[in-house]
Amino acid sequence: MSARVEALHAAVREACFSPKDEAKRDLGALLDRHGVAPPDRRALLGAKPRLSLYRKLVRGNVLGVCEAILERGHAHLEASAKGAWSDAVDAYLDAGGPRTPHLRDVPSELVAVLVPRLMQDARVPSYVAELFRLELTEFRVGAAVNEVLPASFDDIAAERPVVLRGPSERLMFAHPVHTLGVAPTPPAAAAETRLFVYRDAEHEVRVVVQTPFADELLARLLRGLPLGHSIGEAAGACGAAVSEALLTEVAKWLADFGERGILLGAPR
C-alpha cells in the first residue's frame, strides 16, 4: 500500500466525516494535513470541488439508516432539543464514524455516543434515552439469528426448564416508553416499566409489559433454570411467598406466553 494512496483515502475520509465541510472551507489545508502528494494536491485543487458531494452522500447514508431505525427517539429528541441529534451525529463521525461493516449496526454505534451526551443536556427529558434503547432492542431482536429448539408442551414440569422462543430481551425503564409513537408527546408520567421484547413465529417484533414478578421469573427461565426453582427464586426476589394465588398467576402467565407462541414447552 503506497503512502500516496493512503494519504488520499485519509483526506477523503476527513472530507466526509468532519463536522464542518473542510473540503469547502480550505481544501489545501485538508490535503496538507494528510500529506497528499504534490501532483495529487494540484489535481484536486484544480478539479471541481466535489468532495463536498461525497460528504453529503456518505452522511446521507449514515443519517438515513439511523433515522429509520431510531425514528421515534429522533423525533422526540428533536422536539426537546433542536440540533442535539445532528450535533451527536457530527460528534460520532468526527470521532471516526462507523466501525461496523454492517450499515444496520451503525445506529447502535451512534446511540453509544448519543446517550452520554443526552445525560449532560438539561433540555433533554430522561425518557428519550430510554426510547432510543427500546428502539435499538426492537431492531436487534428483529434481526438476531435464532434457532428454534425442539420442545414439547407435554413435558412441562416443575423440575424442568422451559423453552422460550428466541430471540428476546428484557428491559427495565423508568418510563412507559413503549407507549410512545413518532409524535413527540412525552409519556404521561414516570413509572417503573418492565418489558419483554420478543420475535413471534411470523418474525414480527412484539413488546409485552411484565409485572416485577413475571420479569424476575423470566430472567431465571431465560438462564435455563427449572420452572419450579425459578418460581421460588422470583417470589423471593419480590419478597413474596409461593402461595396458591401466586401459582395461579404463574399458570395464567404460562398460558398467555403459550398463546403468544413464546412458550414452546420443555426441551425435548
Binding site: S2, R4, H9, C16, Y54, L57, P98, V106
Partner: peptide, 25 residues
Amino acid sequence: CFSSAGGSVLHDLLPIPFLTSEVAR
C-alpha cells in the same frame, strides 16, 4: 472503489486513483 479507510467504514462507494501502482495491489 474504496469504502473503508483508517478503520472507519464510510458505507458508500468512494473513488480510487487510476495509478499504475494500484493495479497489482
